[in-house]
């Protein structure tokens, strides 16, 4: 499915994105984003935290949701996109996660100005929600 809002109805799902998060990727993200919190990078430090081991940056995992939305709505997402999420569980390096996106409401008539609300999230391998929330895009024509 693409961003053809004329055909979007509640219940329709966005193509999921599946990614394995590696420690190398976490290190690369720390460099790219400038976030060197040792909870992501230092195995010894992370062992003493509530998580017991290193975790991926929440913003790295959230980037997968943004990628899903930007792929479905390449024009609308960077200019009308809104996102509101909670980080509910950590993602550990080595885990494979997948994004979810389901339209839950479509407001107004088809065409420009129509707002589509999605329930979005990221699921861990056991189905636990790592991220959960809502995303909105407005049809621009």
């Amino acid at each position: 499915m693409t961003g053809d809002a004329a055909r979007i109805e509640p219940g329709q799902r966005l193509p999921e994105i599946v990614k394995q998060v590696t420690q190398e990727q976490v290190g690369a993200y720390a460099e790219a984003a400038g976030d060197f919190n040792p909870i992501h990078l230092d195995e010894t430090y992370a062992a003493g935290t509530q998580f017991g081991r290193r975790i991926a940056h929440g913003m790295l995992v959230l980037a997968f949701v943004s990628e899903m939305m930007a792929t479905a709505f390449p024009r609308e997402w960077p200019t009308t996109g809104r996102l509101k999420v909670r980080f509910k569980a950590p993602v550990f390096p080595g885990e494979t996660v997948r994004t979810t996106g389901e339209a839950i409401s479509v407001s107004g008539a088809s065409g420009p100005g129509q707002v589509i609300e999605y329930r979005v999230g990221v699921l861990k391998p056991d189905g636990t929600e790592a991220i959960a929330g809502q995303a909105f895009v407005t049809v621009t024509g």
């Binding site: 976030d35 919190n37 200019t79 009308t80 996102l83 999420v85």
Partner: peptide, 29 residues
């Protein structure tokens, strides 16, 4: 992410800081 990282560095947030929630709005590319 760039904005958040700047704030983390500016505030010198302690090592165990965890991200709990995020809201974003994108208006212009």
């Amino acid at each position: 992410a760039a904005g958040l990282s700047h704030m983390i560095q500016l505030l010198g947030l302690s090592a165990g800081t965890v991200h709990a929630g995020q809201e974003c709005e994108f208006l212009l590319p």
